[in-house]
Amino acid sequence: MPKTQEKARLLETRRVAEDTHRIALYAPRITATARPGQFVMVRITSEGTDPLLNRPFSFHRIHKDDGLFEILFRVVGRGTWLLSQRKEGETLEVIGPLGNFFTLPPAHEETVALVAGGIGIAPMEEWGHRLAQWARGDEARRVYLFYGARTASEVVPTRRLERKGVTTFISTDDGTLGRCGTALDLLDQTCRDLSIRPQRLYSCGPLAMQAAVATWARQQNLPAVMSLESVMACGIGACLGCALPAVPPDDSSRIHYVHVCKEGPVFDSRKILWEKMEPMPVRPLSFVCS
């Protein structure tokens, strides 16, 4: 699939939850070959060299017929803050589609679960949409979404997925909406309470959550397919900046890294060495723009 650099027109920008924005970009060439799980690199500013680097965002929604896609992001630093200030009608340089993508479950699997933590909901919407189509192909197929956020105001609406037939459960860390607890607490408890037995997990969220989901999946002997993130400079496999510690192909003990932009962003959780991961620093929002 060829990668393309395209001047995208910003068609719509909308605040969908606290510090969370969704923007629609008209970029027909990128959209034409975009697949759920893949990502784009977006140039934040059209002028100047600060911030210098593009920012990676997964496809949140892909509208093939209209030649446009949407991204969903949280304001976590100066780059995302500036992006949230861009206006409808402006153009942004976008590179994509990049990286690998989610693939449908093997034929014998009928029940799958999406697990999303915080802004990790971003790639799950388009993928949930596709899985809902997959589920319509066979009565026995079920798609669940377990979505955890910090607090009610940060929950991104999931009505579109629910309408498509994705059974959705929500939790918040502070209990202001849905069950009180993390996305993993929600997954674990709901599966017990309702005797849901997912045969496969698709997961996206902060590193600590992903590591916990990976451990849970291992205990349940389930495959977990994870969309991972990293600080990234190029997004096209040139700088090798987005390395993650991984199990070497020969299963030896030698040091091995995979690159989120090249071998990922979608990984089998068993291939990642979670214990060797450095958590990404979180900056309190009140300091982001000062």
Partner: peptide, 15 residues
Amino acid sequence: PGNPPPRVTETPAGM
């Protein structure tokens, strides 16, 4: 294999 991550970070007009 290279260095452990994080390997890159942005700085004013640079990285």
